[in-house]
């Protein structure tokens, strides 16, 4: 049984799955729209959360996994059924049944167990998303939005991936669209998405949102004095990985958000202002790229990283100032 399913590659897994599932139902929501309506842009540096197996503090450029599915379906009036399981066999049977009934099924899986990923990307990250749209013998047809083409995955690997353990364990989570509203309020959803992103980025807590960027800058400055050089380098390069690795669309989702603002400009009355904001966000993204380039250069040189870490922190601080201005202006304009 194979469902006719159009695979579109995307930068980020969750927004890609959301967009692909919606397009399958005939709603033309592309990836940037799904990302923006889901208000997934964020920033946080959380030193006491060390999910990495090298024990490196967490730096994230987006909201927690699952938020896009939740927000987008809610705002567009889409019925999404989510199921979790305690038992592997039950989870696999339920998925097979749904596919038989003609539903493409979205899954949360652990990346480490997916054989179609290159080894360098297979770490224990449990909140990857993909769509299964068919089964042939013992193999599933998988549309993984971060890959250019659909792939196949054996039932054995699928079982392992769906019941991966550790932080954010999926517990076999699967979801599928059960109903849609024919004419969803996209405009309203776009505006709500922007507003919520502003709200999240402007939050008063010191380690999340815009403030978190300044916090990261301060931490980067301190790293060389706090730990051996090797570890400080590992910490700094980890920020680069979180920012630029496949799945962010470049510059820690900043370009993806800029693309969303451009789509928002096409739909909302504040057309010119939103286009200008999109360009401003592009400039912020470019600044983040500058940081990644600089940080890699510093780490490569190795000698006397003590003071050079400061110059990387300076660029992060510039990012902080730019994003602070950006979101302050955005809040002001949207209040009225």
């Amino acid at each position: 049984m194979t469902i006719e399913f159009q695979h579109h590659q995307s930068a980020h897994c969750e927004s890609g799955v959301m967009s692909n599932l919606l397009r399958h139902e005939g709603l033309n929501i592309d990836e940037p729209l799904a990302f923006g309506i889901g208000s997934a842009l964020f920033f946080a540096h959380i030193p006491f959360l060390k999910l990495d197996n090298n024990k490196i503090p967490l730096t994230t450029f987006r909201m927690n996994p699952g938020v896009i599915l939740k927000r987008v379906t809610k705002l567009l009036g889409v019925g999404l059924t989510v199921e979790r399981f305690g038992d592997v066999t039950k989870a696999m049977d339920a998925m097979d049944r749904r596919i038989e009934m003609g539903f493409p099924v979205g899954l949360q899986v652990g990346v480490f167990w997916l054989p179609f990923f290159p080894d360098a990307l297979r770490f224990h990250f449990n909140a990857h998303n993909m769509v299964v749209y068919g089964k042939e013998g013992d193999e599933y047809m998988v549309s993984d939005p971060t890959l250019p083409e659909p792939v196949r995955c054996s039932a054995r690997d699928m079982r392992k991936a769906r019941f991966s353990k550790g932080p954010l364990a999926p517990h076999g989570k699967m979801y599928y669209i059960t109903s849609i509203t024919p004419d969803p309020p996209v405009k309203k959803a776009v505006l709500t998405g922007i507003k919520r992103t502003c709200f999240l980025m402007k939050n008063p807590f010191p380690i999340g949102g815009v403030n978190g960027i300044r916090y990261l800058a301060g931490r980067i400055r301190k790293w060389p004095g706090q730990m051996p050089e090797d570890q400080a380098i590992l910490y700094l390069t980890n920020v680069i990985r979180m920012q630029e690795e496949i799945g962010t669309g470049g510059a820690g989702f900043r370009f993806l958000f800029a693309a969303f603002l451009q789509r928002a400009a096409d739909r909302l009355p504040q057309r010119e202002w939103l286009s200008a904001k999109s360009s401003e966000m592009t400039a912020i993204g470019d600044k983040w790229r500058e940081f990644a380039l600089m940080a890699a250069k510093i780490c490569k040189k190795r000698n006397g990283v003590g003071d050079t870490f400061g110059s990387a922190a300076d660029i992060v601080e510039e990012c902080w100032m730019m994003e602070r201005t950006f979101f302050a202006d955005m809040c002001r304009n949207l209040k009225t």
């Binding site: 590659q9 380098i233 630029e244 690795e245 799945g247 370009f255 451009q262 990644a292 890699a296």
Partner: peptide, 30 residues
Amino acid sequence: GLTYAVNKSGRYIQVSTEGWAPVNYANELA
């Protein structure tokens, strides 16, 4: 992978990429 970039007329489009040197370096270190 995919990244988002601005084309000549200022519109965002999806561009396919093989990777970026700073990230590759970070991955090699890991």
